[in-house]
Structures are given as C-alpha cells and as structure tokens.
Design a binder for these strands. Structure first.
Lengths: 131, 131
DNA sequence: TTGGGTGCAAATGATTTGCAACATC
DNA sequence: GATGTTGCAAATCATTTGCACCCAA
C-alpha cells in the first residue's frame, strides 16, 4: 500500500498507472487524471508518486531534460532495464544477465564498490520506424 | 572553438574545465569561477556550457535530482562510459566493447533502431570506501 | 563599425512545502 | 476524534530568455 490511508486520489492514481505502459511525467499523469474527470491537485500527484517510488512500486526514468518520468514496476520485480521508443514512448523490459555481469566486472576492475546502475536505451521501435 | 569570439569569460570557463576531473553542475562551475576571482554571470556560464555540449566538447551527466553536470570530453573522443564515485565525484572512463555489442544485440532482438545509450555507473571509489 | 556576447533581471518549468480545511480509520 | 491527506498558493531550484549595453574582430 501507498501510505496508511486509502483515499479517492490514491486509488485514482494507482488505477491509472495500472493501465499505462510508458514512462510518464507527474504532469502528464495529472493531466490524464483530469481528462478522466478525476479532480486531483498536482501536489498530491507528486507526493503520491514519490511515496510509491520510495516503496518500490514505481520506477523512475530521467528524461534528457531533467524531467522525472514514472512507470509501475513489473510485478515480478526482477532487476531489468528498458528499451524506450523515442517516438511513441513504448517501453520494453529487457533482462540481460550478461549485462549485469559486465557491470560487476568493470566496477571490480576499478575498485569501485556498491555500484548501482540504471541503464535505459532510447531508440525507435519497429512500428515507429515503419511510419 | 566555442562560437566565433574569444572572450574573457569563455577563456575562463574553458581553462577551469581543463583542470576539473569530475562532473560539475553549472552552478558549481560558476561558483568555482567566482572563487578564482572571475566575475562571470550565471547566464553566461549556462550559455557557454550549452554551446560546448552542442559542439561535443563536454559530456552531460544527469544527476538523480535532474540536475545537469558537465565534464570535458577526453581528447581521444572515443565512445566510453563513466564510473562516478558517489562520495567524491571522481570519474573514471571505462571503455567496454562487450557492453556496446550487448546493447546492439538487445536492441536488434526487440526490433529497435538507432539506439542510443548513455551508461554511467554510480559507486564508491577505493579511497572513499577506506575513509 | 557591427554583430556576436554579456549581465541582469524577469520569465519558465518542474517540483516542493506550509498550512488550514478535510476525510479516513 | 485523532491523525494522515489534500489543495492551493507561495516558495524553491535549475535553467532560459529579453534586452540594452559592450567588446572582439
């Protein structure tokens, strides 16, 4: 659960996120909620999104502009990366054990510890390439 | 060259960046310049930094806060990644051909084209781990 | 001379926060 | 009824931009 209390706004945000498969910004999410007739303050959207990230329910992707975008974590919750389409925003999960091993090895080579990485790729998906 | 004209402020910024080995924000760079007695407007720092990035003289790293940080490109200019120390900011260049191949393969597997990636790792360097 | 460059202050945009009103448990 | 939540507006923060003035070429 998000916090302690189940409110109309948290339910609305959680439900909306269930149906979204692309990384979206807080502003976009707020806007989508309004279009669905859900009146929710922007501040509440930010607060809820942050809480969900802290509880591992959402992943964050930083856009080149510095804007934060969010996507629900896959239920399986395994460590993985994303292929994001620069045109339509479609996101594909990618699990690559070799990649993890490589990162480990590189870090060790340079005596770095507790290395984190959040690797995401930006490309053009098949559908958008055709268009 | 940065633009067309060589000004006191551009020289100061370029010289400062020569001596820096960690990713630094525009604000930090501005502050460092002031401490060196260089009076330069913040706006000019931003404008110059952006111009240098566009001309491939600097690399950009987005901090988790969404803040942009800059570091001069290695002269060799080859594609590579960074290991950044979360404590001291020290940055180590890492070239990993295997990593590039892996990325290519993953993208192809999912029919994504023109895939870009900017992979940076955050860890604790040997010196900071000891302290 | 002259157009690019600079500084400053105002404008932007995203995100956070203070606080009183409010709803859930 | 107590405490966590919300909404709104104000406050932050990083970054950009308008514009009059300035300087390198």
């Amino acid at each position: 659960m998000i916090g302690q209390r189940v409110t109309r706004q948290r339910v609305a945000i959680a439900e909306l996120l269930e149906s979204v498969d692309e990384f979206r910004s807080a502003q976009q999410i707020h806007q989508m909620l309004q279009q669905r007739g859900q009146e929710i303050g922007l501040a509440t959207v930010y607060r809820t999104l942050n809480a969900m990230v802290e509880q591992g329910q959402l992943e964050v992707l930083l856009q080149p502009t510095g804007e934060h975008t969010y996507l629900r974590c896959e239920p399986r919750g395994e460590h993985h990366h994303h292929l994001v389409c620069r045109t339509c925003g479609r996101t594909v999960d990618v699990a690559a054990p070799e990649l993890e091993q490589l990162v480990e090895a590189l870090a060790a080579q340079h005596d770095f510890r507790d290395v984190e990485h959040s690797i995401d790729f930006l490309g053009t998906c098949q559908d958008c390439a055709r268009a």
